[in-house]
Amino acid sequence: MTNALLRIGTRGSPLALAQAHETRDRLAKAWPELAAPDAIAIVVIQTTGDRIQDRTLQEAGGKGLFTKEIEDALQDGRIDLAVHSMKDVPTWLPTGLQLTAMLPREDVRDAWFSLTAKTMDDLPPGAVVGTASLRRQAQVLARRPDLRVVPIRGNVQTRLRKLEEGQVDATLLAVAGMRRLHTADRITSIIEPEIMLPAVAQGAIGIESRADDTRTNRYLAALNCAETFTRVTAERGVLTALDGSCRTPIAALATLNGDRLSLEALVIRGDGSQWFRTSRTGDPADAAEMGDDAGRELKSLLPPDFFGPPGTPGFRPPEWS
């Protein structure tokens, strides 16, 4: 490994490794000197988020749990680049690090899994839905307040096993992850964004590096998908303005149509009882500003206790009724 030209840091889950391998393969294709078998090494780093399985991420401390140890290795030079699921990356990066590239974005939608119900609407009252995502929980309960949502942790394989064992009646995962694992055939149905708005940056792979590492950054420049970077920048702008984390059910989706960037953003109570939604359309060059403006608008509308105890009376816009 010491002879490798580049060292990629990643979590050790099957999905994280698939993303690291995709990054390695793209680098090898772009740069002949990186095509040799030992030119790129993949370094597996266990994160706090991987070790904690007995409670939800909200209880454990939020998104940085999946990136801190990898970023520590990046800062002290044990690795040259880090590959992340962008939806796991906090909006504030450690000093000296930057998001240098993003790969072409996969399907942004959420996938529905159930042995008995084709869609969420087909579940009987009182059925149990398992999810580790507060965003998914909130949107499920907004549409189906008669269902029961319980925490379910673990990688893709673990969650699907719990479904098959009957621990839950349904669960949800990202379509992107299933496709990257070549297991999309196991999806029961796909939930459109009109029904469940995706997580910020869902389906995007981000590559983090040291800002002053000109050699690595030159390699990574060839991998960057400008469209994905623009879309994710707008969505993360919403998250930054709202001071969002795994503890705050926030959803956002930016799309590019020609020379126009459209952004939908949502913030919702964890029990689905109240939410606020906004949208923006503008120049892709203004992606960060659009996201910030949308997030600030939403923040200005929130009651002081919005992320506090559930059950506060809310409203249901017609399209969500």
Results as ranks from 00 to 15, higher is better:
residue 260 R to K: 12
residue 274 Q to L: 15
residue 272 G to I: 06
residue 8 I to G: 01
residue 100 T to F: 01
residue 308 G to M: 01
residue 309 P to C: 02
residue 241 A to M: 04
residue 266 L to A: 06
residue 165 E to G: 01
residue 257 N to C: 06
residue 248 T to S: 11
residue 170 A to I: 06
residue 130 G to C: 08
residue 208 E to I: 15
residue 138 A to T: 04
residue 68 K to E: 12
residue 81 L to T: 06
residue 11 R to C: 14
residue 38 D to M: 03
residue 296 R to I: 03
residue 40 I to C: 11
residue 21 H to K: 09
residue 289 E to S: 12
residue 53 Q to F: 05
residue 88 D to F: 01
residue 280 R to T: 02
residue 249 P to M: 01
residue 147 L to S: 07
residue 295 G to R: 11
residue 140 V to N: 08
residue 172 L to Y: 01
residue 266 L to G: 06
residue 243 D to L: 05
residue 246 C to E: 14
residue 87 K to Q: 13
residue 177 G to S: 09
residue 10 T to E: 02
residue 227 E to L: 12
residue 77 G to I: 01
residue 190 I to M: 09
residue 41 A to E: 15
residue 128 V to S: 05
residue 110 D to T: 00
residue 93 L to G: 12
residue 97 L to T: 15
residue 75 Q to I: 04
residue 93 L to R: 12
residue 14 P to H: 00
residue 237 G to P: 10
residue 302 L to R: 07
residue 177 G to E: 03
residue 127 A to Q: 09
residue 150 V to L: 13
residue 121 D to H: 13
residue 170 A to G: 10
residue 239 L to V: 00
residue 53 Q to P: 01
residue 318 P to N: 07
residue 225 C to A: 14
residue 67 T to G: 00
residue 211 A to I: 14
residue 196 M to S: 13
residue 319 E to G: 05
residue 320 W to Y: 14
residue 189 S to V: 08
residue 192 E to M: 00
residue 230 T to L: 01
residue 138 A to N: 04
residue 300 S to T: 11
residue 7 R to N: 05
residue 169 D to G: 12
residue 183 T to A: 15
residue 255 T to Y: 05
residue 208 E to N: 02
residue 133 S to E: 09
residue 71 E to A: 07
residue 229 F to T: 15
residue 251 A to E: 08
residue 124 P to L: 03
residue 176 A to I: 04
residue 225 C to Y: 04
residue 228 T to L: 07
residue 9 G to F: 03
residue 113 F to Q: 01
residue 209 S to E: 08
residue 152 I to F: 00
residue 55 R to K: 15
residue 12 G to I: 06
